[in-house]
Structures are given as structure tokens and as C-alpha cells.
């Protein structure tokens, strides 16, 4: 392993760790104002939506994003499984099987 790789890993790890830990240290020693609690209470739904939608889009620099049809098709049975079962495991397994089938059939 070269120093270039080692230093990169160490510094990338440091900035990631700070992003994860510093907010805990700050919030612990601070009374969080009401508006901030209200604002942060939307983080879960907003961030999960954003992560999901990101996986359905394809970024093309300088153009409108394209659609990841494979992921969009596989999402449909996964969402239906969620509504029917309310089980995380069922959603994941349905989605993976659907994706394997889509690739096998050459859709998307």
C-alpha cells in the first residue's frame, strides 16, 4: 500500500467521522431551540425520499436527469409488498427477486 492511498483513507475517514460525531457533541451540550427540533423532525422523511429518488434518476452533467428504468420497475412490486406486509424484509426480498427477474427478461 502506498502512502498516497493510506493518507487518503485516513483523511477521508477523519472528515467522515467528524461529520458523524461533532453534531452529537454539540447537541449534547446545547439546548436545541424549538424551531430547530421542528426543522430536524422532517429530516427522516425528507432524506429517505431523497435517497430513494436519487436511485431512480441518472445524472447527466449539464442535462436533465434520465430515468433508471430497472430501479423504477423493481420499485413497484417492492412498494406493493410494503403496503401488503408492512415488513421491511419482505420489501427487500421482493425487490431483489423483481430486479433479478427484470435482468433475466432483459427489461429496463
Amino acid at each position: 500500500m502506498t502512502n498516497y492511498i493510506l493518507i487518503t483513507i485516513l483523511l477521508a475517514g477523519l472528515v467522515t467521522w467528524l461529520s458523524r460525531v461533532v453534531p452529537f457533541a454539540i447537541i449534547k451540550n446545547l439546548t436545541v431551540p424549538r424551531w430547530l427540533i421542528n426543522f430536524l423532525s422532517f429530516v427522516p422523511v425528507a432524506i429517505m425520499t431523497a435517497i430513494f429518488i436519487e436511485s431512480l434518476l441518472v445524472y447527466h452533467a449539464g442535462h436533465w436527469p434520465g430515468f433508471n428504468l430497472e430501479n423504477i420497475y423493481a420499485s413497484i412490486p417492492a412498494i406493493i409488498a410494503g403496503v401488503l406486509t408492512k415488513s421491511l424484509l419482505a420489501v427487500v426480498i421482493t425487490g431483489v427477486i423483481a430486479m433479478a427477474a427484470i435482468r433475466l427478461l432483459g427489461w429496463g
Binding site: 410494503g82 421491511l88 427487500v92 425487490g95
Partner: peptide, 13 residues
């Protein structure tokens, strides 16, 4: 697709 499926499930729940 497991990751996408997982976020679908977590978001819905």
C-alpha cells in the same frame, strides 16, 4: 437493488 428496496421499506414504515 437491496439498498433501494430497504429505503422503500423504511420510508413507507
Amino acid at each position: 437493488f437491496a439498498v433501494v428496496g430497504m429505503f422503500i421499506g423504511l420510508l413507507y414504515l
